[in-house]
Each structure stands twice: as structure tokens, then as C-alpha cells.
């Protein structure tokens, strides 16, 4: 352990703003990449699923109307 106490660790020997700014921005950006990738994937899947559901219902109704026309 390079520091005597947690306070020491946070202070970084007087270089706290620089060290924590660098690490903070890096961490935030990496987390942002992960969150963005996850949101992108979820949104895409949701959109694809919605499209399939819509497709299924239109298929069914068109099938039904087609059948009715056939009966008539």
C-alpha cells in the first residue's frame, strides 16, 4: 500500500485533481461506451420484435380477409 490512510489516498499527495480528473473521465467514457452499446442493442431488438409482431398481425388479418373473400 502506497498510502497511510484513506484520506491520504484521496489526496494523492496533492495531485488529487489531476489524478482523479483523468481517471474519472476515463471511467465515465468507458462506462458510457458500455451503456451506449447496451442501449443500442436493446433498442434494435425491441424495434425488430415490434416489426415482427406487427407483421404477424397484418399477415393474420390479410389471411382472414382473403378467406372471407374466398367464401363470398
Amino acid at each position: 500500500m502506497a498510502f497511510d490512510s484513506f484520506q491520504d489516498f484521496l489526496a494523492m499527495g496533492g495531485h488529487a485533481p489531476y489524478v482523479w480528473a483523468s481517471w474519472g473521465v476515463t471511467g465515465a467514457l468507458l462506462a458510457g461506451i458500455v451503456l451506449h452499446a447496451r442501449a443500442e442493442r436493446r433498442q434494435l431488438l425491441r424495434r425488430l420484435q415490434r416489426r415482427e409482431r406487427r407483421q404477424a398481425t397484418t399477415d393474420r388479418t390479410s389471411h382472414q380477409t382473403g378467406g372471407q373473400r374466398h367464401e363470398a
Binding site: A2, F9, G14, Y18
Partner: peptide
């Protein structure tokens, strides 16, 4: 790497603790 680099690696004799930026830079 973060825990080791931030808390356990020794400080640089010239740059002190600011050298810990190296671990992300």
C-alpha cells in the same frame, strides 16, 4: 490494474502521485 495502480504501486520519485495518470493514459 486500477486498484494496484492507484493504491499499491509506489509513487514516482520525481512526479509523485500524479504519475498514476499513466495507468489510463
Amino acid at each position: 490494474g486500477s486498484v494496484w495502480g492507484l493504491a499499491f504501486a509506489p509513487a514516482d520519485y520525481q512526479q509523485g502521485n500524479s504519475f498514476r495518470i499513466i495507468y489510463v493514459h
